[in-house]
Nucleic acid binder design. Structure first.
Lengths: 126, 126
DNA sequence: GCTATATTTGCAACACAGTTGCAATAAGAG
DNA sequence: CTCTTATTGCAACTGTGTTGCAAATATAGC
């Protein structure tokens, strides 16, 4: 159904994404909002914001869900396909501004693709 | 520690992977082995087989873990980086024999990458 | 500003994948 | 065959995410 009303919970949640295009895990969001917003509400808002094309999500290899702001997506579809980079040292995840071309595969129709790259980030290399 | 002893549970588990290079979810393995092998044992064997480079694993976007046979991997590392294709109709997941080149990223060291492609498979297109 | 109403929220209980501790079992070296 | 130690099963647990429902609240219309 998407976001209809502008509530305090929504503002608090969106302010977490204000400063950067880094991804934030659902668990981290729940933790940092826990004195103001119930975890059920956080999950529900995240779902709706994803439907609306405001956020996109992906799953890291340890099975927790991450969200980040979209660029150029809408409720009609997520246009925004880019790799995500997870630093195995500090755990930080961000979106890479990078084109990765998936070759088409005979006999299969591709709808979406997710690329998760793991390694060591800038900060942790030094 | 890896696999040391050849047990009945191990044989039963490996026979599930005998016929194809399709991926099988941990949940499906537990279900199909449940009258012979305890689920804890299945999880433990899968972990160890992955350490040994016999199987590789990845997470699908709904948060469940999939395993498939490796080609050319060993306990020293998973050499075998290829995309996985999940059919959103029938749910089947398989490994694609496809090179996808991840460009190197300035200031970051890449250790591994996972590519999950979702779409419709050959069988379900018709 | 007030009222009506439909959306949103919090709570508690739940679902379900995966993990842990520990005692019992069994592989296989000698 | 015996002994050691890896492996297994069980039960209880962890943690992420979900659901039903009653209470709270945003906002459209007046």
């Amino acid at each position: 159904m998407g976001i209809v009303r502008r509530t305090k919970s929504l503002d608090l949640l969106m302010s977490q994404f204000a400063d950067s295009h880094d991804a934030i895990s659902a668990v981290a969001l729940i933790e940092s909002l826990k004195k103001d917003v119930n975890k059920t509400t956080v999950y529900r808002l995240l779902d709706r914001l994803e439907d609306d094309g405001v956020l996109h999500s992906f799953m890291s290899s340890d099975g927790i869900k991450w969200y980040a702001k979209c660029k150029g997506c809408s409720s009609s579809g997520h246009a925004d396909v880019h790799p995500h980079f997870q630093c195995t040292d500090c755990g930080k995840v961000d979106c890479l501004d990078l084109e990765v071309t998936i070759p088409s595969i005979p006999g299969r129709k591709i709808n979406s693709s997710q690329i998760l790259i793991q390694g060591t980030c800038d900060n942790c290399l030094n």
